[in-house]
Nucleic acid binder design. Structure first.
Lengths: 114, 114
DNA sequence: ATTCATTATGTCTTAAAAGACACAATGTTG
DNA sequence: CAACATTGTGTCTTTTAAGACATAATGAAT
């Protein structure tokens, strides 16, 4: 038996941010474009854009700095708020993952501690 | 912003046990009947039974000791494996909830620790 | 043997989430 | 000022999960 966990952030009831959106934002940061990021993750641009918008609305912060026109047609980069969110999110989920594994061993696999 | 978490157990890929099923089993223990437990939780007997069966199959353990016939028509009680599962599950999720809250405060609300 | 409230199970319907399709808007570059 | 690859957005379709409906089976009590 294995323990699994899904961690997400909420603001007034709606899902705001979780692992899929973290990956999406990281791809945008790396590729400089939401369109390219969506392609890399195998999702439609429409879906990717919708998730970003949903998070922006839920948390009330701006995640992407976008431009249109120009040689590449435009692009998107992360705002400092987005970078901070990713950074804290990764720190948090990483820490929780470690703790969950540790507690799982303690409670489910170490008989003497029951 | 609030952090949320769903914890569940898996065995070879399938969802095995989570909070809804814990509540269902606790209601069975209290009421002595799966039918009554389903009613109390506002779900159909069919749905409740299906969840119990799915968990039993996934974890390979028997959760309910059932009888049919007699004055009350029959009933169900928890096996010792079910009781142990509930006990460890509650201990585990309780501990994780505390740790998550603590880490959340540390990373998202305590600026000096970044 | 009849009754009765339960367990047991197949199948159908509905609700919700995710994704696809189509098309408009942008604005820099050449 | 035309071209182009991007962003922006409404709507439709598909997929999937959850629940409802119907109906059989059980077996102690009477």
């Amino acid at each position: 038996m294995k323990v699994k966990c899904k961690i997400w952030f909420e603001e007034n009831g709606g899902v705001a941010f979780a692992d899929g959106r973290r990956m999406l934002l990281e791809a945008v940061e790396r590729l400089g474009s939401l369109n390219a990021a969506a392609k890399e993750l195998g999702m439609s641009y429409r879906a990717a854009w919708g998730k970003i918008k949903a998070t922006e609305k839920a948390l009330g912060i701006k995640l992407l700095e976008v431009t249109t026109g120009g040689k590449g047609g435009g692009g998107a980069t992360l705002t400092s708020e987005a970078k901070e969110l990713i950074s804290k999110y990764k720190k948090y989920t990483g820490r929780i993952t470690v703790l969950m594994e540790k507690e799982f061993k303690r409670i489910f696999e170490n008989e003497k501690s029951q």
